[in-house]
Design a protein around this nucleic acid. Structure first.
Length: 481
RNA sequence: GGCGCGUUGGUGAAGCGGCUUAACACACCGCCCUCUCAAGGCGGCAUUCACGGGUUCGAAUCCCGUACGCGUCACCA
């Protein structure tokens, strides 16, 4: 039997990080097997929560992350449709619910909401619905329905005994059937609830490995009772611990936490986001942290998924994103950051040279625009900046160095870094100074800033002869006053 | 409240009864390198694994209890 997993989100307009991680794990579990199949199914049975365009966000996120599904609404497959509302139209769920009734796994229920409410209030914390409709015969129920009665279909739970299952990450879970409630399977609008549609579809779509959040751990016994009533094989379960905002709450939109799209908008790479979230709740057996998706497929092992919630740490994501940025070939990096550089600059610059000084310094794409703006902002500054203890310089030494540098810089037209380096590095020795006593003042003189990305040589090369000399002259004049 | 699950540093975590006086990484702090800032290199950062018992020659690792946290108990998914 081929290994099949699925990612089954609700189109609620937002891809949160915990959800994305579940998708990732489901993908990894499937792809770990050379023949494994990864399916996308849209769970839109709650008509009240549909959000326009939400499905596109799901497709877009999966595509950006490289989580390519083998079957789904947009790519087809043999066990479609892959959108639950379409399956409702086909009558799939109601048919199966009726079959389940005949098999004794469910029953019709005509109770009014108010009856439940009354019982609920009377029972307080002890509430467990004791459904009088359970005792009704099928014939009687069908007669009432024919007469136009409103109904739902509820699961029938054995009053005694226990139900157990083995979860791949949490181990064996056992619960008393008496603690399980008789949940609604088919709502009065004839739509299935998640609890039912999920089980039916997982079976019909041949899902062998169910990967989902651990909030479903306590309802899994109920699902298994349905599988058993139908005589179906129970899948392997892989319940994942939550991704937390802090020790008390999960990462969520309600808390204003970043979604995948928010992180992209903040300048993080999909690869880095995926890499980071893979590490939340799972640890590789080797001592390593940087993984491409393909490498994750190789390294992933369900047995190494943890059991306690992991707090999402934006700082570590930022670091990891920086690593991804730094590890790129310069040309690729240049193409990637070019728009961000140009956004921060009015004039034209050699963006490849700028990219080179940015690469070891920028951790996110967005900070680049700001990092680069200093290139065009040159105005008077305090000469006091030339006093630098560590560089052993002061305005006097600086002036001497700048004059010498000015001479050299005026004599050449070749402003390549190589040439500038060759020329300027002769100066310290000639002047009997340390490198820092010449180059630090020079960098300061052409930027007016205490610190900048890049050094004097790199920056002079970026500015070019005319601009470099213009700034240098300004600074020399300022020092001579 | 019932039921289920969890608890190693500020964070992610390794650890699966002796090799642990608890890896590695982020953050933080030093030092080195260095033309500033980064990047990079090196070092520091839990005498201790929520707490209390027990088992054992030996426990972060096994068992029991307590505390705390999370989840679930919807005609939401």
């Amino acid at each position: 039997m081929t290994l099949r997993t699925r990612f089954a989100p609700s189109p609620t307009g937002y891809m949160h990080i915990g959800n994305l991680r579940t998708a990732l794990y489901a993908y990894l579990v499937a792809k770990k097997d050379p023949d494994g199949v990864f399916i996308l199914r849209i769970e839109d049975t709650d008509q009240g929560r549909l959000v326009e365009g939400a499905t596109d966000i799901i497709y877009d996120t999966m595509a950006k992350c490289g989580l390519k599904h083998d079957e789904g609404p947009d790519v087809g497959g043999d066990v479609g449709p892959y959108v639950q509302s379409e399956r409702v139209k086909d009558g799939i769920y109601l048919d199966y619910a009726k079959k389940l009734i005949r098999r004794g796994g469910a029953h019709y229920c005509f109770c009014d909401e108010s009856v439940l409410q009354a019982q609920r209030e009377a029972a307080g914390d002890e509430f467990k619905y004791d459904d009088p409709c359970r005792k009704l015969s099928i014939e009687e129920c069908e007669a009432r329905i024919a007469a136009g009665a409103q109904y739902v279909i509820r699961q029938s739970i054995p009053e005694t005994g226990t139900t157990s299952f083995d979860d791949e990450v949490f181990g064996r879970i056992t619960v008393e059937n008496s603690t399980l409630d008789e949940q609604v399977l088919i709502k009065s609008d004839s739509f299935p609830t998640y609890n039912f549609a999920n089980v039916i579809d997982d079976h019909l779509m041949g899902i062998t490995d169910v990967v989902r959040g651990m909030e479903y751990l306590s309802s899994t016994p109920k699902y298994n009772l349905i599988y058993e009533a139908f005589g179906w094989d129970i899948p392997r379960y892989i319940h994942c611990p939550p991704v937390m905002k802090d020790e008390h709450s999960k990462l969520s939109k309600r808390n204003g936490d970043a979604s995948f799209q928010d992180l992209i908008a903040k300048g993080y790479l999909p690869e880095a986001i995926l890499n980071y979230i893979a590490l939340l709740g799972w640890a590789p057996s080797e001592n390593r942290e940087i993984y491409t998706l393909e490498e994750l497929v190789q390294a992933f092992d369900v047995k190494r998924i943890g059991t306690s919630g992991a707090i999402f740490d934006p700082e570590k994501l930022t670091w990891l994103n920086g690593m991804w940025l730094r590890n790129m070939p310069l040309d690729e990096y240049h193409q990637l950051v070019k728009p961000y550089i140009e956004k921060g600059l009015k004039g034209t610059f050699d963006t490849r040279k700028i990219a080179a000084i940015l690469q070891p310094r920028a951790n996110t794409l967005n900070e680049i625009t700001e990092m680069v703006s200093f290139l065009e902002n040159f105005s008077s500054y305090s000469n006091d900046l030339y006093n630098h203890k560590k560089m052993k310089t002061n305005p006097e030494i600086a002036l001497e160095s700048l004059k010498a540098a000015r001479e050299v810089l005026a004599q050449t037209d070749d402003y390549s870094e190589e040439n500038l380096h060759a020329l300027l590095m002769e100066l310290p020795q000639k002047l009997g100074r340390k490198n820092g006593q010449v180059l630090f003042p020079l960098r300061l003189a052409i930027t007016g800033l205490q610190s900048t990305p890049g050094g004097a040589i790199e920056l002079a090369s970026i500015f070019g002869k005319e601009e470099t000399l213009r700034r240098l002259d300004f600074s020399i004049a300022q020092l001579e006053q």
